[in-house]
């Protein structure tokens, strides 16, 4: 396929796409460069601002909350989403069609297509009313976590559903035929077989949580500032600042590093079909 394009066209494609790659990375690179700005009163590039971060308790607390939120919501969201993808793939009646049969899909797609802002404000109001009525659900990490699970679960469900669709339906009957009851079949067949989808779904859920700002922002409470909210408030207040550059650089490096590692890891696995020891 690649050989079908004439050399001049390929050259033109290279010349026109390189600026796009540059555009994608230049702003991020610039942040990184500025993060090594000299210390106040100094001249040379320094790690001063990274050191400053380390001594900033708000940053460390925000980091801790971000990780806690992402981990907690991803575990819960992966569980709910896996069950949902599994159930819809296995037990939804194929015979029926029409609006009633489409309701589960409509519900699952709602969090995906709902604009984040509407999502966030709807939850802001809902938790507000709920708190007034019950005294529970005060805005904070709990409400943020609930909102995160709400948008993570559908994505996990889609990943698991896609994996389930690729399986021979006889597999499940074969497990029952071989004396497995419903739960045994789920834990000895379904879970191991869709494990890559579950892990992939979990990583996706984690990324979605870390990446989210808008929904977190509207469901957050006074004591639940996460890293993106911390940066947003700092930037909205005082604009560009070197310590924010350092913090942003660390976040960019983590994400890009994790992304590349994940890519290398999955590539490695694809090349070698897994030899498994007996149990």
């Amino acid at each position: 396929m690649s050989s079908r394009l004439a050399p001049p066209i390929r050259r033109a494609l290279l010349l026109s796409s390189m600026p796009v790659y540059l555009l994608l990375y230049a702003p991020l690179a610039l942040i990184a460069i500025f993060s090594f700005a000299p210390a106040p009163g100094g001249q040379a590039a320094s790690l001063h601002w990274y050191g400053a971060l380390w001594h900033e308790p708000d940053v460390l607390a925000a980091l801790r909350r971000s990780v806690m939120l992402a981990l907690g919501s991803s575990i819960f969201g992966t569980g709910l989403g896996t069950l949902m993808g599994f159930g819809l793939s296995r037990f939804r009646s194929r015979a029926r069609s029409g609006f009633a049969a489409a309701i589960p899909s409509l519900i699952i797609y709602t969090p995906i297509i709902m604009p984040s802002l509407v999502f966030g404000i709807a939850d802001l109001i809902f938790f507000n009313l709920l708190h007034k009525a019950t005294g529970l659900f005060a805005a904070g990490l709990l409400t943020m976590g609930i909102a995160h699970v709400t948008f993570q679960a559908p994505y996990v469900a889609l990943v698991v559903f896609a994996r389930m669709s690729g399986l021979d339906p006889n597999l499940f009957e074969a497990s029952h035929d071989l004396y497995a009851n419903g739960w045994q079949s789920f834990f000895h067949l379904t879970v191991p077989v869709i494990r890559p989808a579950i892990i992939g779904g979990f990583l996706l859920a984690f990324t979605l949580s870390i990446d989210d700002f808008t929904i977190s922002y509207f469901t957050a409470g006074p004591g639940s500032t996460t890293l993106p909210i911390y940066i947003y408030s700092a930037v909205a207040r005082k604009g560009v600042a070197p310590d924010i550059n350092a913090l942003a650089t660390l976040m960019i490096a983590t994400v890009i590093g994790t992304g590349l590692l994940q890519y290398l890891f999955t590539r490695q696995k694809e090349r070698r079909p897994m030899p498994r020891a007996g149990d």
Binding site: P27, L28, I31, I210, L227, V240, I244, I256, Y263
Partner: peptide, 22 residues
């Protein structure tokens, strides 16, 4: 393709902040 997607995995606030700098 991954190199196109990677920047979008960083938080939107960070990505937008980068342009404030620029």
């Amino acid at each position: 393709l991954l190199f196109v997607i990677l920047p979008s995995w960083t938080n939107q606030v960070v990505r937008t902040y980068a342009w404030m700098e620029l």
